[in-house]
Design a protein around this nucleic acid. Structure first.
Length: 707
RNA sequence: AGCGGGAUGGGAUAGCCAGGAGAUUCCGGCGGGCUCAUAACCCGCAGACCGGUAGUUCAAAUCUACCUCCCGCUACCA
């Protein structure tokens, strides 16, 4: 509550969600890291003492599973990714004061210490729970090793999270109909002693905490709902080898193979990484203990998918262990690509390395990602929009203003004319500084960019309005005044834009002959007089040509098509057709046309192929709708030897109560599948949009084969 | 269907959380200007009754209720 505005006289720390050491980085990740980096830089320009820390998230089941599949040690596997991340971030001008990982000694020790404290303070208890166990593989199945049905919404869910349905965090033992994700075997539940963190005891604290939490509104509102629904205690141990051992566990009767749940040690990395920073620069320079245990402004930038961890579990842990609470949680929206969801499996993504390999400057992407939509908003990325943004705002407005002003100044005055800045321009710059300060305090990155861009826009207007090129002869003094103002504006834009385009700002900084790093100066320095002399300036932004965009779009489409492997490609129209036309004509409702029948397949199959299809006559014994699904029905079908459970998409199309007793035809050797958590063991044959059920009309007995 | 986000001039977006002069910015269209500048930049014009309905209020894009539609994730071929 009632937090002071930034800058405060306390140290701040900015963190971003830990990248999970399990795959390549894409612009979805980058948005968060760039956003947090920009915010941290912006804080610095306000004069706030701050540190930007992060680290790789090394533990957890996916790392263990994937490492196992590749036959490598999980530590080695995760470290490979860690190193790659470490190399990638600076290439986007994302500069951490410290970048560690959760498996290093600092984090391991600190995690144990914090858990020990929680335990000693009575926030942890032990309970026997049912843990999924794969009898065939003879091992327990923590988290994502098990899949099943969400007990809350009935969706298919992972062991630790209802990732596809209600997004809830699931406790071990909660998932229904568990199946081992390693072997595909049905899992059984076994009794096992685990440690629980008493989150429920923090209900009151968390409610209050959320009232005072800054950042984005989704990070404040979503957890309120969860609290209202009742907080569940949190199982913080897992039956695995890969992870941080539960402290003091070796001589504990709970067994020595329990490790801490990854979500315990992951956020602690925020603290550990800060600590490592202090260890490197000294506590005089930056004191991690002060920030985390005494007084400090902790700002977490995360993706909106991990709000729960940062607004429930994490603050409860901090409170329970005697640490400071976060001041702000800023949850970013997702990135979509050409209007559709980013999907790594379908290769519908812009990869970090790919972007760099295309030769684009990192600041362009930084600008795009931070200024295209609000932090909380989902932002669409397309190469077209990227081009528009870069060409229009960075090249046309900012770059052009920078270049024309400095070039004019260089040619006529060999630098900054010796005049004083006019009152109008000074006020304008002061206004922009105020806007930036306000934006930072509202966690509004776009606002920062806008303030800078608007100032550049004003610069263009100002130079245009005053036409110094006409004045150099008639009224040289006036001309010098105007250019003096323009150089000042150019400098101010560089300072204001530095959080977003640090490298470009630095270049301009050097072009006007300034020493040192623009990253180190404060906003107010935007009003300081630039050096008297500077060299001929160069252009800082280049246009992206249309051909280039076409090429990039093609590449992207090809890649997606390759990954999707010829799935429905609705959009592949016959080239030059008028796009508008097809759009406007979609309301043709003449549906009874028969010319939309699928063409007959040309490819013939062999008799043997046909024999592989085991099609039988069956009788529907029972039919009921599947809860939560629009069209799916669960059927029990007598196929002669046994009764099969089959899922069919006919709920809307048939009166389910009339189905029992009816004969039908079904493919019985269809591979089993799970839909909405219901296993389907066969495929009912039906024709047409109305799912007209196939059946027999003679005396074919149930179980007879169709041939 | 669940969860999340959204519905504002041709397209994309801001404002809405802290309700008050018919509303932001960018792209595009039209007209004009300038020539210092990366065919850039500047000025002007056209164009939205701010998804619908009902409320609260002196006053609503901005608050409340209901509704419709859209998008993302998941997914309904099994």
């Amino acid at each position: 509550m009632s937090n002071d505005e930034f800058p405060t006289d306390r140290p701040a720390v900015v963190t971003c969600g830990l990248p999970y050491a399990n795959g390549d980085l894409h612009i979805g990740h980058l948005r968060g890291y760039i956003g947090a980096d920009a915010f941290n830089r912006a804080l610095k320009t306000l004069g706030q003492q701050t540190a930007y820390v992060c680290g790789s998230d090394m533990h957890g089941t996916p790392v263990a599973v994937n490492a196992e599949q590749q036959g490598v040690d999980p530590a080695e596997f995760a470290l490979d990714w860690h190193r790659q991340y470490e190399e990638t971030f600076p290439q986007f001008n994302v500069e951490f004061d410290n970048y560690g990982h959760t498996h290093d000694e600092t984090n391991t020790e600190l995690t144990k210490e914090i858990v020990r404290t929680l335990d000693e303070e009575g926030h942890v208890y032990e309970k026997e729970i049912q843990v999924a166990y794969d009898p065939e593989a003879d091992q327990y199945l923590p988290d994502r090793y098990v899949e099943g049905t969400c007990p809350y919404c009935g969706e298919k869910a992972r062991g630790d999270e209802c990732d596809e349905g209600c997004q809830r965090h699931l406790e071990p033992g909660e998932v229904e109909n568990p199946v081992s994700s390693i072997t595909g075997n049905p899992a059984e539940y076994r009794e096992r002693a685990h440690k629980f963190f008493e989150v429920s005891a923090f209900e009151e604290y968390l409610t209050e905490f959320l009232d005072g939490l800054e950042g984005t509104s989704n990070a404040r509102n979503q957890p309120r709902q969860w609290i209202e629904d009742g907080l569940q205690d949190w199982c913080i141990t897992r039956d695995m080898d890969w992870g941080i051992d539960y402290p003091g566990d070796a001589d504990d009767e709970t067994g020595s193979d329990l490790v801490l749940y990854v979500w315990v040690d992951a956020p602690i990395e925020y603290i550990s990484s800060t600590k490592q920073y202090t260890e490197r620069v000294g506590a005089d320079e930056y004191d991690w203990e002060r920030v985390w245990t005494e007084e400090g402004d902790i700002v977490h930038v995360i993706g909106r998918d991990i709000i729960q961890h940062h607004t429930i579990f994490w603050p409860a842990m901090l409170e329970g262990a005697g640490y400071n609470a976060p001041r702000a949680v800023a949850a970013t929206g997702f990135i979509t690509i050409n209007g559709k969801g980013l999907s790594t499996s379908r290769n519908r993504a812009i990869w970090a390395n790919e972007y760099l390999e295309e030769g684009f400057h990192p600041d362009l992407l930084r600008y795009y990602l931070t200024t295209t939509g609000g932090l909380q908003q989902d932002v669409d990325f397309s190469w077209n929009a990227f081009q528009e943004k870069v060409n229009g705002e960075l090249v046309g407005t900012v770059g052009n203003f920078w270049y024309r002003s400095l070039l004019f100044a260089y040619r006529n005055y060999e630098g900054t004319p010796e005049e004083a800045v006019s009152a109008e321009v000074r006020e304008r710059i002061e206004g922009a500084i105020g806007d930036v300060r306000e934006s930072v305090n509202e966690y509004d990155l776009r606002g920062i960019g806008r303030a800078a861009t608007r100032l550049a826009q004003f610069g263009n207007e100002y130079i245009q309005r005053n036409e110094p090129w006409k004045l150099t002869d008639d009224d040289p003094e006036r001309a010098a005044q105007v250019i003096r103002d323009c150089v000042q504006i150019a400098k101010a834009v560089a300072v204001l834009l530095e959080p977003i385009t640090p490298d470009k700002s630095q270049r301009l900084w050097e072009q006007i002959g300034e020493d040192g790093d623009v990253a180190d100066v404060h906003l107010e320095d935007a009003l300081e007089t630039p050096p008297r002399n500077f060299d001929e300036p160069g252009e800082l932004f280049a246009k992206i040509e249309d051909d280039r965009v076409d090429e990039l779009n093609e590449k992207l489409e090809e890649r997606i098509a390759a990954a999707t492997d010829g799935d429905v490609d609705d959009g592949t129209e016959s080239d030059d057709t008028d796009a508008d036309e097809s759009d406007d004509m979609t309301d043709s409702e003449s549906e009874t046309e028969t010319d939309d029948l699928e063409p007959l397949l040309e490819d013939r199959i062999s008799f043997d192929d046909f024999q592989e299809l085991d099609i039988r006559v069956g009788r529907i014994e029972a039919a009921e709708g599947i809860e939560g699904a629009d069209d799916l029905a669960r059927l029990e079908v007598d196929v002669g030897f046994e009764t099969r459970q089959v899922v069919a998409g006919i709920k809307q199309l048939h009166d389910l109560s009339e189905l029992p007793g009816q004969k039908c035809v079904l493919l019985v050797n269809m591979e089993p599948a799970e839909l909405f958590g219901v296993e389907s063991n066969g495929m009912i044959l039906a024709a047409g949009d109305e799912a007209d059920l196939l059946t027999t009309h003679g005396d074919a007995a149930v179980g007879e084969k169709v041939r």
